[in-house]
């Protein structure tokens, strides 16, 4: 007669939020840049967990893509953030940013992100010019089912990063790429880029421009440059 219902999980059918981090691992990243990036990602993980915990109705998953001469998945299966640990990336080769976008476009759909989803968050980190067909990559991204719905954030490392290209990836006039001129900046930018958009997507407000808070904060970060190393 008794028909047990697990009331405790009743409210816990959470929407997934997929975070995809795309990292430029070209030759120019070799040395202290890639070392800083690995450090920055490692320290961002607990911060992502914290923001995920603050938004209990959101189930945050992470994937990582590296691109140099080719694009390849570093973490290809969406990993629940609570289980995720960072494995260091190595640098060397060219900057196949177009191929990276194509690879990401392939998973921005119901098949690879099944069930109830929040808009995905795409974070692009790069220190240079694309060496392949960026345009083809961008069209593939925008043509994918969730491409235009995704929140797109970019971090430009050093003086040689291609700001215009990153700006086109973001596709929002006021939302500028974040700039990192030294290791300390990079830690702060990566932490912000992987956490602030999760908070915004999980608890949306009624602001006419859903990205307004994000781009305001982004431009504020860009006003302080303490030390130009890169």
């Amino acid at each position: 007669m008794s028909n047990p219902v697990d009331l405790e999980t009743a409210g816990l059918s959470r929407r997934q939020l997929n975070l995809v981090v795309m990292v430029d691992c070209s030759g120019s990243m070799t040395g202290d840049r890639i070392a800083s990036l690995n450090f920055a990602m490692r320290t961002a993980v607990p911060a992502i967990r914290e923001v995920a915990a603050d938004n209990p109705e959101t189930d945050v998953r992470i994937r990582v893509l590296r691109f140099s001469t080719e694009a390849e998945w570093h973490v290809g299966e969406a990993e629940p953030i609570d289980n995720f640990t960072w494995t260091d990336l190595k640098a060397g080769g060219e900057t196949a940013m177009g191929a990276a976008l194509i690879a990401v476009a392939e998973i921005l759909n119901n098949e690879h992100m099944p069930g109830r989803q929040l808009p995905p968050v795409l974070v692009m980190v790069s220190d240079g010019q694309p060496s392949d067909d960026f345009e083809a990559g961008l069209s593939a991204l925008m043509d994918s089912s969730y491409g235009t719905k995704a929140t797109r954030v970019a971090i430009a490392i050093g003086q040689d990063a291609d700001i215009d290209t990153l700006q086109r990836f973001i596709g929002h006039a006021q939302f500028k790429p974040l700039r990192a001129a030294n290791a300390k900046d990079l830690v702060e930018r990566i932490r912000w880029a992987t956490t602030a958009p999760i908070k915004t997507a999980s608890t949306p407000t009624n602001s006419p421009d859903p990205l307004a808070d994000l781009w305001h904060e982004a431009s504020e970060q860009n006003t302080v440059v303490e030390e130009m190393v890169w």
Binding site: A10, G11, G115, R116, Q117, L118, P119
Partner: peptide
Amino acid sequence: HGWHPLDGQAEAAVDIL
């Protein structure tokens, strides 16, 4: 209820919110 009052079938059918 641990749940939003306007989230029923219609919300469940939305793939990407």
